[in-house]
């Protein structure tokens, strides 16, 4: 347990003011099961996301990554600490400008692709022509222009995730949060979807927070990577990848990628074993 110096606290507070999304001293405790036993899911999380960066959080299974996402987006209020987006503290509501892509398939089976994408715009009072234009643009960005009239049941898993991504993009988010979005896809599709995500990130200029357990994904896609420990989840280290902005999956052959992945695995290996024992 580190003792926190006053100057460190001040620096952290200063950084959080300028950060796009900041989490300061965030802890989360759950009461689980019939006996309401207390489970510490997250412990003293401090993160500051810079505007427009691609930030990844990686950790072993069960380390609280999804809880982190809930807290970062305002879906849940932390037991301790504050979460601020664009300088304003979150209090149980998802602020405008934040878009979330969940791990499970969230496409609505009763709507076609166009209606799925337009879902978030219905409340904004935009005129139909404007909505259509926005949907068209989102379809193009996610390369779904031929599938507007299709229903999710007719699409592959990867395409359904793209529909969810398009549904987020159409509201023009400044922060895009993705929770293991490619976990259910095969390895090749994952690489391609990673490239797509990078392209969209560059095109929109949004800040991206990616939650994943895949080392190669984190190493390839991110500007910075936060490595989490097993439960209770703490940030072990934040790594600057030094990746160039115009990166894609073809960079996997570079030596820096290999070094990064190795370093991540060194950090994670012990944590993953601990998580395995926790679960078993």
């Amino acid at each position: 347990m580190l003792s926190v110096q006053p100057t460190t606290v001040h620096a952290a507070r200063q950084a959080s003011v300028n950060a796009h999304l900041s989490m300061t001293g965030v802890s989360q405790v759950f009461e689980v099961g019939a006996t309401n036993a207390k489970v510490q899911a997250l412990l003293d999380i401090n993160l500051q996301l810079r505007q427009g960066e691609f930030f990844t959080v990686i950790g072993p299974s069960g380390c609280g990554k999804s809880t982190l996402l809930d807290l970062a987006t305002g879906l849940r209020v932390p037991t301790r600490g504050r979460v601020c987006f664009e300088g304003r503290e979150l209090s149980g509501r998802v602020p405008p400008g934040v878009g979330i892509v969940f791990q499970e398939d969230g496409s609505f089976p009763w709507l076609n692709v166009r209606d799925n994408i337009a879902f978030g715009l219905r409340r904004t009072g935009m005129r139909t022509a404007e909505v259509d234009a926005a949907v068209d643009q989102a379809l193009a960005t996610c390369r779904l222009h031929d599938f507007g009239a299709a229903y999710p049941a007719q699409l592959s898993g990867g395409m359904r995730q793209r529909v969810c991504l398009a549904r987020v993009l159409v509201i023009k988010p400044r922060l895009i949060v993705l929770d293991e979005p490619f976990a259910a896809l095969d390895a090749q599709t994952r690489l391609l979807m990673g490239d797509e995500l990078l392209r969209i990130w560059r095109e929109t200029g949004a800040t991206v927070l990616l939650i994943t357990h895949a080392l190669d994904e984190a190493a390839l896609l991110s500007d910075r990577i936060a490595v989490m420990s097993a439960r209770p989840g703490r940030i072990l280290e934040i790594i600057e990848t030094g990746n160039p902005r115009d990166r894609d999956s073809s960079m996997a052959e570079q030596s820096r990628f290999g070094e990064l992945t190795t370093r991540l695995w060194h950090l994670l290996r012990g944590q993953s074993q601990a998580a395995l024992e926790q679960a078993g």
Binding site: L75, I100, Q103, D105, G106, F119
Partner: peptide, 13 residues
């Protein structure tokens, strides 16, 4: 109803 769907509703406030 899959749990993710009400979450998406929450995400859209």
């Amino acid at each position: 109803v899959p749990r993710v769907l009400p979450k998406i509703a929450a995400a859209h406030c």
